[in-house]
Amino acid sequence: MFELLGIPPQALFGQLLIGLINGAFYAMLSLGLAVIFGLLNIINFTHGAQYMMGAFVAYLSLTHLGLAYWWALLLAPIAVGLFGILLERTMLHRLYKLDHLYGLLLTFGLALIVEGFFRNQYGSSGLPYSIPAELRGGYNLGFMFLPTYRAWVVVASVIVCFGTWFVIERTKLGAYLRAATENPTLVQAFGVNVPRMVTLTYGFGVALAAFAGVMAAPIYQVSPLMGANLIIVVFAVVVIGGMGSILGAIVTGFGLGVIEGLTKVFYPEASNTVIFVIMAIVLTIKPAGLFGRAT
């Protein structure tokens, strides 16, 4: 077997795949954050908790209702999305006229409540969720073994990400959305119900997080704190990419996942921090982010 820089190809491609998977989650989560931020001007700190809730909906609907993975993939975004809409209608919408920092503080508090609640109910250790029968097994590609489920995660997240990009950049609804991001008062004057659009956008961003949570359930264990540390990495991804561009969020998410995977191969000690270090470097060179507009 040949070796690359002293690393067996199995390990290299294995880590690349893991990196790609992590990148898929970074992409989906930072996409949701960017969509929410664009219209609401709020950084949704609850995003990690909502991702976790998605995974828990999958776990609970399987253990209590006997509903399989595919149902969870449909149910979790709806349920958690409705929860998000409830939050937006009862609390978040009071903050739009205030300093943006209050939105951050409110959603931080909500994240503490949600994560604390799940920790009370289910403890902090992970709960197993098995891979659905249709997606077990894998393919031998010659140079590596590719588990079907992981291939599915990458493909599905790419489809979801580009679907979102298409809706926002290429449809009439997306045009309203982009217009409202630029100037909500004017769009409202044209007869578009902007407050309802804001509510639905928040619901959609949250639903995206829940969808990612269901996808993550069979890979990582389902645990109350699974989103807490992830969300900070996603923040760094958002800072690196800049929130001005949907495509930018997707590319940055996948790219950083792969870089993180490679770091695990070549310099494992830094794999936890590499994304933060990249963020620091990007800030010195291009403070607005790779795809961002200056704020």
Binding site: Y102, L106, F108, G109, L110, L112, R119, N120
Partner: peptide
């Protein structure tokens, strides 16, 4: 944690 989160929300 839950109570701290609750205080955050009420304060904001």
């Amino acid at each position: 944690t839950i109570i701290q989160g609750f205080i955050f929300v009420v304060c904001v």
